[in-house]
C-alpha cells in the first residue's frame, strides 16, 4: 500500500507502518521539550535502539517549540533521528509553528547530509493536531522547501494506521500544483 508523488527532484512516498522500524537514513520523532523519549514511539526508540540515544539526548536538551536536534539512532534500522518539538494540544499559532517545525526538520536533514527522511503525520493522535490540517501543512511545506532547496532524494510519510493514511492518500492524489506523479 503506497502512494507516491514527486516534488522537484524529491520522491514523496506515503506508507503505513511503524516509523521506528523503517529502513531509512533518518526519521522524525515528535519530541518533548526536555527530550525525554517517554512513552509511545519513545518506548520503541528506547527498547529497539538501546540506551545510548537517551544518553546523547541528555546533552542536547531542553529545546523550545519548533526547534529540532539530531541524534544517532543506536541499534535502530535508521542512522539518525531528528527530534522535533512541534506544537501540541491546540496551542497558540499551531499551524504556523507546525510549518516552522517541518522546515527545521528539513533544514537539519540537509545539514546532516540526510537524503532520505521519514516523517510521521506531525502531532496527530496524542498531541491532537487535526489530521486534515496536518496533511495540508506537511505537503505545502514540503513543496515550499523542496522547490527552494532541492537535494533531498526521498521523503516518506509514515502513517500509523488507515485513519492517518487516508487523508494523506487523498491529498497526494489531488496534489494539483505539481503534475509530476510517478507512474
Amino acid at each position: 500500500m503506497n502512494e507516491t508523488i514527486r516534488i522537484g527532484d524529491t520522491t514523496v512516498r506515503l506508507i503505513k507502518g511503524d516509523i521506528t522500524d523503517q529502513e531509512i537514513e533518518a526519521f522524525v520523532y515528535y519530541a518533548r521539550h526536555n527530550l525525554a523519549l517517554g512513552s509511545g514511539f519513545g518506548t520503541a526508540i528506547t527498547v529497539r535502539g538501546g540506551p545510548d540515544i537517551q544518553k546523547e539526548l541528555d546533552t542536547l536538551g531542553p529545546i523550545e517549540t519548533t526547534e529540532v536536534v539530531v541524534s544517532n539512532a543506536g541499534e535502530l534500522k535508521a542512522d539518525k533521528i531528528i527530534h522535533a518539538v512541534g506544537p501540541r494540544f491546540q496551542e497558540v499559532d499551531l499551524p504556523a509553528k507546525l510549518a516552522t517545525t517541518i522546515r527545521n526538520c528539513l533544514s537539519a536533514a540537509r545539514e546532516h547530509d540526510i537524503s532520505s527522511l521519514a516523517f510521521p503525520p506531525m502531532g496527530v493522535g496524542f498531541y491532537g493536531v487535526p489530521l486534515d490540517l496536518c496533511a495540508r501543512i506537511m505537503l505545502a511545506t514540503f513543496q515550499e522547501v523542496l522547490r527552494q532547496s532541492p537535494g533531498m532524494r526521498e521523503i516518506v510519510i509514515c502513517a500509523n494506521d488507515s485513519r492517518e493514511y487516508e487523508p494523506f492518500r487523498q491529498l497526494l492524489q489531488n496534489f494539483s500544483t505539481t503534475k509530476e506523479y510517478v507512474q
Binding site: 512513552s39 509511545g40 518506548t43 520503541a44 494540544f89 496524542f126
Partner: peptide, 26 residues
C-alpha cells in the same frame, strides 16, 4: 484536548496512540 491530565493518563494514551496498545508492548 488542552494537555491537562495526570502524567499516567498521558503516558498510557500516547502508548495506545503510537504503539497500538496501552502498555507500549512492541
Amino acid at each position: 484536548s488542552v494537555g491537562v491530565m495526570p502524567e499516567g493518563v498521558s503516558v498510557v494514551s500516547k502508548d495506545q496512540w503510537e504503539i497500538g496498545n496501552q502498555m507500549g508492548v512492541l
